[in-house]
Every structure is written in structure tokens, then in C-alpha cells.
Design a protein around this nucleic acid. Structure first.
Lengths: 237, 237
DNA sequence: CGCAATATTGAGTTGGTTCAAACTACGTGG
DNA sequence: CCACGTAGTTTGAACCAACTCAATATTGCG
């Protein structure tokens, strides 16, 4: 059974979770501060915005998933980020968007005009700080991924990816060690800078080595967290 | 002849350049806003900060170059960014620094306490916006590099790197098509996610194909800008 | 059920790495 | 001023992780 746009429209806003004791996501704050924004719905594969579009608004995801990506002229694609409920996308653009944002599933967003940012910041300087912190967090993530892409092999990248998903999932559901992948192998491959074949083979190897189990291709259960952690941290060589 | 710490100490602050018509660096603004900071000098290979250090201050580079990098337990290194005069490093850290920052040459910085940021933002909300914009620019750079690392081959990465250096150099010196590399092949390799050997071979290939000339290994002259541009933009396949 | 999209597995190829050796630039001290 | 030593760079040859191309197997949906 699939989540439809209709069901999304009426569903309640999920409670936003704290991400860490030391640092909030900023999302709940932005939520309050810029709550004037209107709600909008996207079907799977619809775009929130494309490269070159005027960056007149940014978005807070309330339900669903969004994929931020770039494409080269010959079609090579790099997924820059996956965004989940509570995440903000489209921040930091100056004038126009520089990447594409596509809903991976039926998605509901709060959509916020960029034009009001400056005024809002002047009314409440703490908002400026929150924007700074929200973008700083995204910067930290991107830079962490640079290390992964530049210096880690396929197994290390995939392990890091699974653990990041697990951490995110835990905040939302408190579920132990299971992950439901909301994206295809091809999305994962384009995120990790690999091919679908390599992602698939690495999943298989993880399964054979008892690190995970896989159900229906999309339900992953972590069986050996420490081993995955060592892989992700580059401590196995 | 080498630049010494002594000569740096007395040299004037270089005029900060605009980066683009549409968007200033924020550096000149931060410069004014937080000019209370003290000047500090670092010799080549000295660290401004290390991973885990309390992030009690951030830095604006006035002269020299700084290399931001991470290291895995087994020694694999990823250069996250090179920073040049006018750039800000150490922003966006929450509590403690998450990477290392090392002076590549004798370097003079303005050093600014993070503790005063919040207060300063409350006094002048526009400062919060500037911090947001400064970090947003770094985020854009990091994400651009994700595409390069994930989907581009050695030639495309090196071409993109040279052109980025050229753009930066033009702002500072208005020099036509020459670049003086302030970093070693090994720094470049760790920045691009390659090995020194591959970087060296790719330089040689560029030279043989008439794209560049190389003097003393560090003075690069661009001979065929359009070809390099096509390479960097992934338009050659 | 049957189709279309996605995922897995296999076999062969390759771009970049690894290991090793030679070369160059440059600062130091005789 | 030159010989020497060190650090960095270039080049060569063998190797390998991930890619490409191709076939088969799932999954989910009408």
C-alpha cells in the first residue's frame, strides 16, 4: 500500500524530534518563527524546484522524502542530500537555486518565502543565528561526506550511509535496529558516488557476512552494529 | 625567497576584493563587525586548531594560506578546503572543532571569539544574516565538490580545481592566466580524492595536450581555457 | 496473470592505485 | 660557490576495486 497525496493532506504534522542533546535541529524554531508559510503537497517524482529557478522560497518537510541532486550535461547524476521530515531544503541559495529537489514519495512541505527572511531576522535576531546554525549543520554533513567520497571504499561508504539512516530513524521511531529504505539502489548509488551494481553487491556481501539482513530489498535489519561502525569509521584496515 | 613571520607581522592588510557582483564575501563586513579580534601569526605547518579543540574562536585570514583537513585512524587524509586571504575558517563549529586547520605557509589571521557572536548578532541582526550567507557559500562549495568527487574523473577534477584557483587569483591580482600553486601535489591529491601520482600524471597530460604550461612545478599558465572549462563542466564525453 | 520497473548476479574491462625507482628543486654547511 | 641531503615530483609497471555490459531474478501494480 502506498501513501497518497490525499492521506498526506489530512495527516497530522509529525512531532519533531530533538537531534542531539547539545544541538537542536533549528527546525522547530524555524517552524514557529516562519509559521506563516503555506502547506503544499507533492506527488512522488514531482520537483519542488530545479536548478536555475528563482529561489523565492524554501521548504520545511513535514512528511515524505526529498532528494537534492545535480546532473552533468551527459547525464551523470550526483545526489547531494536526502531530506526527511523536519529537514529544511532550499536554504542558502542566493537568488536562484543551484540544484534540483525532487519528492521521492508523496510529500507535504511547509513552504516559506525567502523574501521575508531579512525582515524576520531584523525582528528577531535569534532567527539569524538559527539559520546560521541550520546551514552550519548541513555544511558539516557535506564536509563529512567529502571524506567518505574521497577516501572511503564502497563498503565504508555504504556502512556510513546505513548508520546515518539508523540514527535518523531512531530519533523518529525509537525502533531498534531496522531501517526502511525510502530510496532506490540507484538513488543510493548516486548519493555514494557508486553504481547500482556496486551498491547491490555490497549489500549482498554485508548480508553474507552477517552484518545485516534484507527483506523485500528495502527493509534492512542491523545484525552487527559494532562491525558496521568500525567500517564506517575506517577502523578496519 | 620565503615569506617569514617577521615580514608578515609588519605587512599591511591586503585589500579585500569583491567576489562577485551579486554577492559579497561577507568577509569585509565581518571584518568591520568583529574588528575587535586580535592578530595572530602562524609559521608554515603550525595548526590554528585541531579536531576536538574547543571552538572558542574563528579566524579571518589576512595573509598566507590554510588547509582544512580530516584524517582517518589509518592515516588516510581528506583535504576539506583550502582557505586564502579574505576567507573565514572555523565558522559553523558547535562547541568543538571537527577538523584540523594547518597553515600551509607563514600566515597572519584575525582571530575572533565565538562567545561574542551571539551578543554581536543581537546588537546587529544583519551580522546574523552575514554569518548565514558566509556559511551558505561554503556549503555551496562543498556540495559542488561532492559532484566532482562522486562523478568526475581525475582530469575533470583537476581542471575544475585549476579554474577555481584561477578565478580566485584574478580577483586578487587581475593576472591573466597564471596560477602559483601554494600547495604540494600531495595536498592537491588529498583535496581531489586522488593520489599524488595521479595528480602528477594528469598535470603531465595537460601539458602534453597543450592545455597548460608548468614552471618549477608550481607556476601554471593556462593555455587553453575553453578546453579546461569543458573538462571541468563535464562537457567533453 | 502479466507487464514494467527495480534489483541481483556474472564476466570482462579499466582508471586509478600501489610499489618502486629516478629525477628535480632547494636550503645548508663545508 | 659548490657538494650534499632532504623533500617533493615525475615516470614506469603491475595490480585491483569499481565500472560496464549483459543476463536473470524480484517486486509491485494494473
Amino acid at each position: 500500500m502506498q501513501v497518497t497525496l490525499q492521506s498526506l493532506a489530512s495527516a497530522p504534522v509529525p512531532t519533531l524530534m530533538r537531534r542531539s542533546p547539545s544541538r537542536s535541529t533549528g527546525a522547530e524554531f524555524l517552524d514557529r518563527s516562519l509559521s506563516s508559510g503555506q502547506t503544499r503537497l507533492y506527488a512522488a517524482k514531482q520537483h519542488l524546484f530545479c536548478e536555475g529557478d528563482p529561489a523565492s522560497e524554501f521548504f520545511m518537510i513535514e512528511a515524505g522524502n526529498v532528494c537534492i541532486y545535480s546532473v552533468l550535461p551527459d547525464g551523470r547524476r550526483q545526489v547531494i542530500d536526502f531530506a526527511y521530515p523536519g529537514d529544511v531544503v532550499g536554504l542558502g541559495a542566493d537568488g536562484e537555486h543551484t540544484r534540483n529537489a525532487e519528492a521521492m514519495a508523496a510529500t507535504r512541505v511547509r513552504c516559506l518565502p525567502t523574501a521575508t527572511i531579512e525582515a524576520a531576522v531584523c525582528r528577531d535576531p535569534r532567527l539569524g543565528l538559527k539559520l546560521y546554525e541550520a546551514v552550519s549543520r548541513q555544511l558539516g554533513d557535506a564536509r563529512h561526506r567529502l571524506m567518505s567520497m574521497g577516501r572511503c571504499d564502497a563498503a565504508e561508504r555504504l556502512a556510513g550511509f546505513l548508520l546515518a539512516l539508523l540514527r535518523r530513524g531512531k530519533r523518529a521511531t525509537a525502533a531498534g535496529r531496522e531501517i526502511v529504505l525510502p530510496m532506490t539502489r540507484s538513488d543510493i548509488a548516486d548519493y555514494l558516488g557508486l553504481t547500482t551494481e556496486t551498491v547491490s553487491r555490497t549489500f549482498t556481501r554485508f548480508r553474507q557476512e552477517g552484518l545485516i539482513t534484507i527483506d523485500q530489498g528495502i527493509l534492512i535489519a542491523i545484525r552487527d552494529l559494532p562491525a558496521l561502525q568500525r567500517l564506517a569509521d575506517g577502523e578496519h584496515r
